[in-house]
Design a protein around this nucleic acid. Structure first.
Length: 546
RNA sequence: GGCGGCGUAGCUCAGUUGGUGAGAGCGCUCGACUCAUAAUCGAGAGGUCGGCAGUUCAAGUCUGCCCGCCGCUACCA
């Protein structure tokens, strides 16, 4: 009985390239998960897009001296290239700059307004009289009241690390013009988050299978009380308001429109099919499941704020699970383009095969803890595990078969108990990997698949077909046939993780390249072996040195 | 400062509701094998489970305090 599963993936800012930390934290996991569910036969819709709004975009635009729109277009293209090169298989990867997204955002705004969950309030905000615009906190600089640092930003002091309100700063000045900003009244719409404390708590308390940090954090926020949040800002870059009673110069604030992207992307996807209403299967059918893949920094928005918005909107599905990951660190530091820590995913894609990257990152996914990764470790993982155990297994079996059995899969005689045991063990592996992936324990799933490859290696060392073939070619052929069946099963188990080499191996074995069932396809004796060659390249130790 | 998470073999990590001598992969040592990308297989060494105190017949697993790391702290989303 097939399930309907929305795979909702965090929206990266279109202000930089995707780096390896993001890949492992938020993008590779949903891809593995989605690929698995597609093979099983579930109806998967995997969506995400570039976040086009927000301060990081405008900051970048100022830095590069170009328009925000140009920033988005430039990096959006780069991000899409990352997905293509690494095989991240979105059904739709869009952006929040589309007219569809704007329409959906306005619809959500109006519905929440109509239900009384939005209200107007006047606050005081710094205003730059010279540049004639309101200033986000990080556009205000001044002297830190705690440590006296002269270059503190309005949101945080980089010297002592404390969080600040821009109004705390001594001698504030505008980063735009240098002028002294003045406080001025400004009116904004607020989302009545406080109204959802009780329903959110009840909903979260039932989520006992969620990862501990996700649920505890969300419940902790509720314990502290949920303040109402401003959803509009005095900016020029953002989704326009669907109402005009605030006057000009106001836009919807990025956090509010960004999470709506999950919904708008599904709608955009459906509009491109022959059933424009198809998105409803994922959003309105209460049986449909939804998994949100985000980094731990995004937990509040996905476990509290977005569910509250959905509750307020009514009629749309709440998240089934939010298997948030911790961070991948590089020598202890969080990967960050702005701080120059860690290379971009494309940089690695220029130097390594995509499956090598997917293996190295997939084997250290930060599912429980921050996980440290170095270039040396990537190379070691690939050479000592992927190439040595799995790649070599395939190569030793297929080359021996091809060379001794007329470039074909040998035809088996009767199977011994150990032959049968190996095949049964392979089928059990498929079940185990399936269980792990459904629980979103993806590292364990990969480990399990690799263990199965080790079992086949052990079987071969025990059976020694290279010796047996001299006296009993029939028996040796049977051993190789059994090993090939096991390889066929392991190929399926690893397919969500290693899609590129899965295709290559399928071609070698004459199997359907598209895997359509989570089971081991039998490879018949006599099947021609096509173009047998190593599945993976063994890496030079210095391949990542420059 | 407050909140949450984490701190387990050289490295990266698992350790269900507390219960036989603390696990995996890689690395390392030794042995076997030689079909295979010097790959594979087997065995072994290696840990006062961050520290201190406590609860308990019994704690890596619970409580308190301390140290360290990470994230969040609502105007980064």
């Amino acid at each position: 009985m097939s399930k309907t599963i929305l795979v909702a993936v965090a929206w990266p800012y279109a202000s930089g390239a995707i780096h390896l930390g993001q890949l492992g934290g938020a993008y590779l996991p949903p891809d593995i998960f989605a690929r698995y569910h597609r093979i099983v036969g579930n109806k998967v819709l995997m969506v995400s897009g570039s976040d086009a709004h927000g301060t990081p975009i405008t900051v970048k635009a100022d830095q590069e001296g170009i328009a925000p729109r140009d920033v988005v277009e430039k990096y959006h293209a780069l991000i899409i290239e990352s997905w293509d090169r690494l095989g991240i298989s979105f059904d739709l990867y869009t952006s929040t700059m589309t007219s569809n997204h704007s329409t959906v955002t306005k619809d959500v705004f109006l519905r929440l307004l109509e239900k009384g969950y939005l209200f107007k309030k006047t606050t005081k905000q710094f205003y730059d009289p010279k540049a004639e615009r309101f200033l986000p906190d990080r556009y205000v600089e001044g002297t830190c009241p705690h440590c006296g640092f002269g270059e503190a930003r309005g949101d945080q002091c980089d010297n002592c690390g404390r969080t600040l309100d821009a109004t705390d700063l001594l001698h504030p000045r505008s980063k735009l013009s240098g002028a002294t900003p003045v406080l001025r009244d400004t009116e904004h719409y607020f989302f009545r988050l406080s109204a959802f404390e009780k329903p959110l708590r009840e909903w979260l308390e039932a989520k006992t299978t969620w990862r501990k940090p996700v649920r505890n954090w969300a419940l902790g926020m509720i314990d502290e009380g949920l303040p109402d949040r401003a959803i509009t800002r005095d900016i020029e870059w953002g989704v326009e308001l669907p109402v005009d009673d605030l006057g000009p110069g106001k836009r919807i604030y990025v956090w509010f429109d960004a999470v709506i992207g999950y919904l708008s992307a599904a709608i955009e996807w459906a509009s491109g099919t022959d059933d424009p209403e198809a998105w409803k299967k994922w959003w309105e059918d209460p049986e449909a499941e939804s998994y949100y893949f985000v980094g731990k920094d995004n937990i509040p928005f996905h476990a509290v704020i977005w569910p509250a918005m959905l509750m307020g909107y009514t009629g749309l599905n709440l998240p089934t699970d939010i298997p948030a990951n911790q961070f991948i660190t590089f020598k202890g530091a969080k990967a960050s383009k702005s701080k120059g820590v860690g290379q971009s995913a494309l940089w690695y894609a220029d130097r390594l095969e995509p499956d090598a990257i997917r293996y190295a990152v997939g084997s250290i996914l930060p599912e429980q803890n921050d996980t440290d990764l170095s270039d040396d470790q990537i190379i070691a993982r690939v050479n000592d595990e992927l190439v040595a155990t799995w790649g070599n297994l395939v190569n030793r079996v297929l080359s021996m078969s091809s060379r001794n059995y007329d470039e074909k899969v040998p035809t088996p005689d009767d199977l011994t108990d150990s032959d049968k045991a190996l095949i049964e063990s392979t089928d059990a592996t498929l079940d185990q990997v399936s269980t792990y992936i459904e629980k979103v324990e993806l590292r364990a799933g990969l480990r399990t698949g690799m263990r199965a490859a080790g079992e086949v290696n052990a079987y071969l060392n025990e059976q020694e077909p290279w010796k047996v073939i001299k006296t009993d070619p029939g028996r040796a052929g049977t051993v190789l046939w059994v090993a090939i069946q096991a390889i066929s099963g392991i190929r399926v188990a690893l397919a969500p993780y290693l899609p590129f080499s899965t295709t290559v191996l399928g071609e070698m074995l004459g199997l359907d390249v598209e895997i359509e069932s989570w089971s081991r396809p039998e490879v018949a004796g006599g099947t021609p072996l096509n173009d047998v060659k190593p599945l993976f390249i063994k890496l030079d130790p210095d391949v990542l040195d420059a």
